[in-house]
Computed example of a mutant assay.
Amino acid sequence: MTGWHAPNNLVTRYADGSLAETDAWSLDKHLERCGRCAARVSHAVRAGAAGPSLAAVRAGVLAAAPAPRRTAPAPGAPRALGGRLTRILWAAGPAVRGTWAGSVVLVALGAVALAYGGGWAGARPLLLALAPVVPVAGVALSYGRHSDPLHEIAASAPGGGLRLLLTRTAAVLAVSAPSLTLAGLLLPSPGPRLPAGPATAGWLLPGLALTLASLVLSGYLGCRTATAVVGGGWLLAVSAPLLLSGGTGLTAGLTEQLSLYFTGAPSQGGWAAATVLCALLLAARRTAYDRLETM
């Protein structure tokens, strides 16, 4: 704590919604840790034009809610643990809280089972081909009015918009990247009849670039459409050369195609440049993610 408290004019503008977005974000983080300023903001809101409506809503909720059951907290358990865990789960997004995380684990375990239990040599290249679009799918299920029932509330909060979208994207990457990379390490190496494939971690930078590209397009097309365009484009880029060439087998052809995309300094350098470009575009268009109709 620094001992700083928000001045009265800042509190008033925050309460009536006239405070600039960047200042509102900064004050929002301060209110999470300063009960004194939070109480002042609450008093300012109740004293404003929305005060009577909020009082009526509060009275209706209290009248309809059942009486709370009082239970003693566990000895030594911090009181703030439940509230902090709730905020973390909310910020992580529907994808991490829902079935998507379990699906990622099942994909990883399925690839290992196919390689060792089924003896299929194509499990490794198939996993590497799908890995870059797995976090893209997680982003589609983490943000937007089609997937998040609290989207309007989340996007209109001072901590919503691009900051919440990046938070949920980071949570998606934190689940998918370790799971799929570990599965790739467990898979057997290509046999003598197959060409040497890309490194196990070769998909990480392409996956990050595709994820950021989907976020950039979300500001124009919406989250759902943008992720479909990026994910479908990647799958088409991988599968189209295999469908057009009938010479080599599917596993060998997929391995060669992935080596072209993932292996070597030129390809990885290109993905790195795409990642930086997408990050710059996100920063330049950060205000576009505050408009609900675009997401």
Rank of each mutant, 00 (worst) to 15 (best):
residue 187 L to F: 02
residue 187 L to A: 03
residue 187 L to T: 09
residue 189 S to I: 04
residue 190 P to N: 07
residue 190 P to H: 13
residue 192 P to T: 04
residue 192 P to L: 05
residue 193 R to D: 12
residue 193 R to E: 13
residue 194 L to Q: 15
residue 195 P to G: 00
residue 195 P to E: 14
residue 196 A to P: 04
residue 198 P to C: 07
residue 203 W to A: 00
residue 205 L to Q: 02
residue 211 T to M: 07
residue 213 A to P: 08
residue 213 A to C: 04
residue 214 S to P: 11
residue 215 L to T: 10
residue 216 V to M: 11
residue 216 V to A: 06
residue 216 V to T: 00
residue 218 S to Y: 01
residue 219 G to W: 05
residue 221 L to W: 14
residue 221 L to V: 07
residue 223 C to S: 10
residue 223 C to R: 15
residue 225 T to Y: 08
residue 226 A to E: 13
residue 228 A to R: 15
residue 229 V to F: 10
residue 230 V to A: 03
residue 230 V to Y: 02
residue 232 G to H: 08
residue 233 G to T: 06
residue 234 W to C: 01
residue 237 A to N: 12
residue 238 V to Y: 03
residue 240 A to Q: 15
residue 240 A to G: 04
residue 240 A to T: 14
residue 242 L to C: 05
residue 242 L to I: 12
residue 243 L to H: 09
residue 243 L to Y: 13
residue 246 G to Y: 11
residue 246 G to F: 04
residue 247 G to Y: 12
residue 249 G to Q: 10
residue 249 G to L: 04
residue 251 T to F: 01
residue 252 A to H: 11
residue 252 A to P: 02
residue 255 T to S: 09
residue 256 E to G: 08
residue 256 E to C: 04
residue 257 Q to A: 05
residue 257 Q to Y: 03
residue 257 Q to R: 15
residue 260 L to W: 14
residue 260 L to D: 11
residue 262 F to Q: 15
residue 263 T to F: 04
residue 263 T to M: 10
residue 265 A to V: 11
residue 267 S to A: 14
residue 268 Q to Y: 04
residue 269 G to P: 01
residue 269 G to S: 06
residue 271 W to E: 09
residue 271 W to C: 00
residue 274 A to I: 06
residue 275 T to V: 03
residue 275 T to W: 02
residue 278 C to V: 04
residue 278 C to E: 06
residue 279 A to S: 10
residue 279 A to N: 09
residue 280 L to P: 00
residue 283 A to R: 15
residue 283 A to S: 09
residue 284 A to E: 14
